[in-house]
């Protein structure tokens, strides 16, 4: 009983409870790029999956180079985040949307939202909503999200590996279908820090040139995804 009243007093002191139901829609705004499985997480405000201008973590690198979110999930789960993995059940196609729901009733410290996924085709490009504070007032909020370069791999723009530290980009079927082949590779090296992506270059040669990315199909302009969050009590 004592405990209960203490809890009630805490709630009263806090004024409004942070607990909320979040219904999240993620839309791929690009013309011809896909996103690998998304990680959607509500987490404490002092945690970031990445920081612009700083080197990427190994976990972020695995996501940005190959779409593997397992290490990021482990990292963020260690701080008791509320996590949704892979809401699109695979690749999110151009123009398509994925939906995720998070309830933070049992986790009032999870006040910030992060959403990340790799862009394909790209060497280490990703869309990143980075620890955005979740409004406490019920309503619908629209956030436009930019593309970042993880800075961990040179942007050679040829089909290759999704393993961290190996060159090239992975090309699952729809990405392979829209890519070229036979590119000799752009001479590029890892930048060393997370930054806003300068966009893919691509070329118009389907069987050669220096890039397997197609310039009239795969280029994007920011924002590359739209996150619509509906907050309710």
């Amino acid at each position: 009983m004592k405990r209960l009243s203490a809890a009630l007093a805490l709630l009263a002191a806090a004024g409004t409870s942070q607990a909320a139901q979040l219904d999240i829609q993620i839309t791929n705004l690009t013309r011809g790029s896909y996103f690998t499985p998304f990680l959607v997480a509500a987490h404490p405000g002092d945690v970031n999956l990445f920081s612009s201008g700083s080197p990427a973590s190994a976990s972020l690198q695995a996501m940005a180079e190959g779409g593997d979110i397992s290490a990021l999930v482990a990292d963020i789960s260690a701080v008791n985040a509320s996590v949704v993995e892979n809401p699109a059940a695979g690749l999110l196609a151009p123009g398509a949307s994925a939906f995720a729901s998070i309830n933070t009733d049992g986790a009032p410290d999870n006040t910030h939202l992060s959403v990340v996924a790799m862009i394909l085709p790209s060497n280490d490009g990703f869309a990143g909503l980075n620890a955005r504070e979740i409004p406490t007032e019920p309503g619908t909020y629209i956030w436009n999200v930019n593309a970042y370069d993880a800075g961990t791999e040179g942007n050679d723009e040829v089909i290759g590996s999704g393993a961290p530290g190996e060159p090239g980009y992975p090309a699952p079927p729809p990405v392979a279908a829209s890519s070229g082949t036979g590119g000799t590779g752009i001479d590029a090296s890892a930048e060393g820090f997370v930054h806003i992506h300068r966009n893919v270059l691509g070329d118009d040669n389907p069987t050669g040139g220096n890039s397997d990315i197609v310039n009239s199909v795969h280029r994007w302009l920011n924002p590359v995804i739209r996150v619509v969050v509906t907050v309710s009590d």
């Binding site: 705004l29 690009t30 013309r31 011809g32 151009p94 123009g95 829209s178 966009n199 270059l201 691509g202 070329d203 118009d204 310039n215 009239s216 199909v217 795969h218 280029r219 994007w220 302009l221 924002p223 590359v224």
Partner: peptide, 20 residues
């Protein structure tokens, strides 16, 4: 077009940037 749907635009490539 590559798909019959409205999307964000990727920008103009232009001859100067390699679109024959």
């Amino acid at each position: 077009d590559i798909a019959d749907q409205v999307t964000g635009h990727g920008g103009a490539v232009t001859l100067d940037d390699g679109l024959s």
